[in-house]
Design a protein around this nucleic acid. Structure first.
Length: 626
RNA sequence: GGGGGAGUAGUUGAGUUGGUUACAACGUCGCCCUGUCACGGCGAAGGUCGCGGGUUCGAGUCCCGUCUCUCCCGCCA
């Protein structure tokens, strides 16, 4: 008789004992001498010949089961292998003196088996199911259902679940209603590439999967829904990153009649609850607010990590008359009358264990490469020597006045290192902003958070506000909306906006919530006047006909009594990753995709039958490049 | 589209100047073992060195191409 034949292959239950009396994380000395029934996976078998230990695992924990020769099923216990699914009936017993395992929550007890019931056999798994696994992610993703048995991923998914429950409860208490919006919707111009879905019933026509429910939630405000939210699945056909997947979730929120000052506290208290209930950390509110321009000039980023200093310094005025060609070029005005700048990061010897002498040629080369990858044509360094002399490849271009201005402005002392980028502002901010983060890591300025023992100071929340409304694109020679085309200018800029004046200086009622250098959410107050919305589309280069074709339904709706409204969307995956203390959002998603957008478990995307394509009126062609 | 890193037993890695039968650990399989929890002891099996081509008497190693994974830039209203 084989093991499988011997076993029932379905759980036993009786009036006396149900299929499962406890989970594998539940038993303590309280249940001493009780008869219990556990179900789970064999995590480990330790066969001592006359005594067999089984670590039985479920998502609640691990319990040690002991098979002694007196157990009638002892011979079958010898046949157990990793990941077999079993049901064990037995007695809870205190572990002998000195045998307690402090690393298990159930480490004070063990279950002495009386009966073993095999529910499922298992092939040998391709990798060990344990937290300390060090296996290539592609292997883990191919067997994601096994990877998800690891306590680490199970904890992350539980945290994500808790997070969403707290969010739902909070928004419900604040009179928000959860409304589902369509996944099959209309393709939208601008923004990310759409995933499109062919319509069998409408040959040649396509739905698009929503990049966000933006227009739909605004229409719900026009419908009078007043306060809406949705845990919305969103789709963007762009290249992936550690924090970007082609499909992702947002906590999508929209409200009517509220100002920023009235909206922010609702969102801040939601965050406060999440951090309190999940991490037991008290986050102070209101969050600091920082205008976009301040974030850029101080940190070189619109999502600054303000847990450490190392702020950017503007040296443009010092070098206004510089004889150094690189600086002259950067400070010259372009055809649209906009000048770049000369800015620097300064590392003082006191602030770090690494004074400038310890920045080797290779270190500086590495830093230069970082700057270059953000478009900087070079990175100019200055080292301050023992005697106070400035050592730099460009030192000979500096006048004495410039040198002394530098020293006093930057408070230079022997051992200081200055890193300068001179270019148009976008490049200067991007390059120095990235260098600041790189140096912050390199010099150990960036705090490491132990998420199990997190403290309030580990989390630097802030609102970045007053984003520019428009951005001019040199290549296409037109303006683009910085946020999206439904974002309202701040009221004080209405006249300029309608009149088409000083467009570069117009600020938007847009805001991002930032935590430790991560944009966790973003939103805006929306345009609610049809004439302003039409003006926006026109400014963005849409003809009236194009605007009508793409957004006619929306412009029409705006004319039927639109309340002032605005909202925001949080990135569920990013928030969950921060609450779990992990980097890649793949680790807080059940079935993520690889960087090529593949699901290696199911091998999707994949080719489909010709007949399927035919029904959809689709013909595929091989492109020359492939 | 561009740049960096990686691909060798099931897994994680080593592999010298191009040279005998490609190595180790863990895992797996068999036998033994009554207090383990990284159990232990003895033994065994396990490989198209990502794929394709080239150079060479000979390629895991050198060259060319290609695929995949990963990090980043562009992109992500």
């Amino acid at each position: 008789m084989s093991f499988a034949q011997q076993s029932a292959h379905h759980p036993s239950s009786s009036a006396k004992l149900p299929s499962r009396t406890h989970t594998c994380g539940a038993l303590h000395l309280d249940q001493l001498n009780q008869q219990v029934r556990l179900c789970g996976w064999v995590a480990k078998r330790r066969d001592h010949g006359g005594l067999i230990f089984i670590d039985l695992r479920d998502r609640y924990g691990i319990t040690q089961v002991v098979f002694e020769p007196s157990c009638p099923d002892f011979q079958w216990a010898e046949k157990l292998r990793s990941e077999f699914v079993i049901q064990v009936t037995g007695l809870v017993r205190a572990r002998p003196e000195g045998m307690v395992n402090p690393r298990l929550s159930t480490g004070t007890i063990e279950v002495v088996a009386q009966k073993l019931n095999l529910l499922s056999e298992a092939q040998t798994p391709p990798f060990a199911i344990e937290d300390e696994t060090d296996v290539a992610e592609s292997v883990r993703l191919e067997y994601r259902y096994l990877d998800l048995r690891r306590p680490y991923l199970q904890r992350n998914l539980v945290t994500r679940h808790k997070m969403l429950q707290i969010v739902r409860r909070h928004l419900d208490e604040n009179h928000f209603i959860e409304i589902e919006t369509p996944i099959l919707y209309k393709s939208t111009p601008e923004g990310a590439r759409d995933f499109i879905v062919p319509s069998r019933l409408n040959p040649g026509s396509f739905y698009a999967l929503p990049q966000s429910p933006q227009t739909l939630k605004q229409l719900l405000m026009i419908s009078g829904m007043d306060r809406y939210f949705q845990i919305a699945r969103c789709f963007r056909d762009e290249d992936l990153r550690a924090d970007r997947q082609p499909e992702f979730s947002q906590i999508d929120i929209e409200t009517s009649f509220l100002s920023e000052e009235e909206l922010f506290p609702i969102l801040e208290s939601m965050i406060q609850k999440l951090w309190k209930q999940i991490l037991n950390v008290d986050i102070a509110t209101p969050f600091p607010r920082m205008p976009y321009h301040e974030a850029m000039s101080r940190f070189g980023s619109d999502k600054p990590d303000v847990r450490f200093g190392l702020e950017l310094q503007d040296l443009s005025d010092i070098f206004a008359q510089s004889g150094f060609q690189v600086f002259q070029n950067a400070l010259a005005k372009n055809s649209r009358g906009i000048a770049g700048s000369v800015r620097a990061l300064v590392v003082h010897p006191s602030a770090t264990s690494q004074p400038s002498e310890q920045f080797s040629r290779k270190d500086l080369d590495d830093l230069t490469k970082v700057a270059a990858s953000y478009g900087a044509k070079g990175l100019l360094w200055i080292k301050v020597q023992e005697g106070g002399e400035l050592q730099s490849p460009a030192a000979k271009f500096f006048t004495d006045t410039e040198k002394s201005a530098l020293k006093s402005r930057l408070d230079l002392k022997p051992g200081s290192l200055v890193l300068i980028v001179a270019d148009k502002n976008k490049v200067v901010f991007d390059a120095l902003g990235a260098l600041r983060l790189n140096l912050g890591e390199r010099l150990g300025l960036m705090p490491k958070t132990d998420i199990q023992n997190a403290r309030a100071q580990d989390f630097a929340f802030l609102w970045v506000t007053r984003f520019p409304l428009l951005e001019f694109d040199d290549k296409e020679n037109r303006y683009f909306a910085c946020h999206h085309p439904f974002t309202s200018p701040r009221p004080e800029f209405f006249d300029d906006f309608i009149g088409g004046k000083n467009l570069d200086a117009i600020e938007a009622s847009a805001y991002d919530m930032v935590l430790n250098g991560v944009e966790v959410g973003g939103g805006s107050l929306r345009i609610y006047r049809p004439d302003v919305q039409a003006a926006m589309f026109k400014l963005l280069g849409l003809t009236e006909q194009e605007a009508e074709a793409k957004f006619g339904f929306f412009l029409q709706a705006l004319k039927y009594g639109t309340p002032p409204h605005g909202g925001l969307a949080f990135g569920v995956d990013r928030l969950a990753a921060l609450l779990c203390g992990v980097g890649p959002i793949r680790d807080v998603m059940a079935f993520p995709k690889t960087q090529r957008g593949h699901c290696v478990m199911s091998s999707s995307p994949s080719e489909v039958d010709h007949s399927q394509l035919q029904e959809l009126h689709i013909l595929t062609v091989k492109s020359k490049s492939s």
